[in-house]
Design a protein around this nucleic acid. Structure first.
Lengths: 126, 126
DNA sequence: AGATTTGATGTTATAATATAACTTATCTCG
DNA sequence: CGAGATAAGTTATATTATAACATCAAATCT
C-alpha cells in the first residue's frame, strides 16, 4: 500500500490531498477507505519518503536525495508548483534562534508561498 | 466580532482551534456559527494580528510588536507552549535560497516542533 | 502441524476543520 | 431616499482526519 501511494504521488509530481490519492487508487480497488491511505502516508512520512505540506493540507513525494532532512518548500500560489530545497545555514540559524530559550528543536516546517519565475514573467510580460 | 475573537485568543495566550474560539464566544451568543469565526480570523490574519499555526491547525494572537512580519514559532510538543520570534537573517537566507530559481516569496511559514526548556528539564532530571 | 503473536489492512462510523451560497442588517455617501 | 458596499447571520455541506473494532496472512514458537 505504501508503494502504491508513493507511486501515485511520484507520478503526479505535485502536491495531492489524501483524498485525491484515494480516488486514484480506488480505480483499481473500489473498497479502499481513508484510514488505509492515511496510514500509508504516515508510514511514508515517517520514513522520509513523503512530506506533508502543512499550509496546503497536502502531500508530496520527497524529491531530495537524502531522506530525513529538513526541507524548505517553495510553493507557487499561481500554478501550484512546489520546489524542495535544503539549507544547512537555515537549519543552524533556526537552531540558534529557537535554542536561545533552551528550546530543543526536533522537527521543522518551512514553507514559502509566492510566485515561481514562470508565473511571474507571465503576469508582468515586460 | 474581530475584536471578540482577538480578545479570546489574547486571554488564552496559547493556540486555539477555531472551534474552541467558537465555543468561548457561544457563551454570550449561542447562535454563533463557524463562518463568522473563520471570517473574523481571516480578517485578523490579514491584518497581522493573528497567526495560523499550520502544523497545529490552530490560531494564536500575534505577540510581536511589529505586525505583518514573518514570525518563527517554537512549539513545545509536550506542553503546547508556543513562542514567537523574528529573524531578519532567516528571512534573508530564505529569500536567497528560494530566489535562486527566480521564485518571488510573499509569505513564510516557519514552525519548529520540539521541547521547551521547562519540559526538557522535567523529563531528564539530571 | 497447531497455537500464537504480530503487523498490515479492511470496515464502519464519526470527529474536526473549513467553506459555499444565500440572506439580512448596517452604514455611508450622493 | 436609494444605490452600493461591508459585515454578519444562516443553512447546509465539503474536506480533512481519526477512533474503534474486525479480519487476514505471514512469522515464530512448541
Amino acid at each position: 500500500m505504501q508503494a502504491d501511494v508513493l507511486a501515485v504521488l511520484q507520478r503526479r509530481g505535485a502536491p495531492m490531498s489524501a483524498y485525491e490519492v484515494l480516488d486514484q487508487l480506488r480505480d483499481g480497488n473500489p473498497r479502499l477507505a481513508p484510514p488505509t491511505i492515511y496510514r500509508a502516508l504516515a508510514a511514508l512520512i515517517e520514513r522520509g519518503r513523503v512530506h506533508r505540506l502543512e499550509s496546503l493540507k497536502a502531500f508530496v513525494a520527497c524529491r531530495g536525495e537524502e531522506h530525513r532532512h529538513a526541507p524548505i518548500f517553495s510553493i507557487c500560489e499561481e500554478c501550484g508548483t512546489v520546489e524542495e530545497a535544503v539549507s544547512k545555514s537555515i537549519t543552524n540559524e533556526l537552531l540558534r534562534i529557537t535554542g536561545q530559550s533552551g528550546f530543543a528543536p526536533a522537527r521543522h516546517v518551512i514553507e514559502v508561498h509566492g510566485q515561481c519565475a514562470r508565473c511571474e514573467s507571465k503576469e508582468a510580460p515586460a
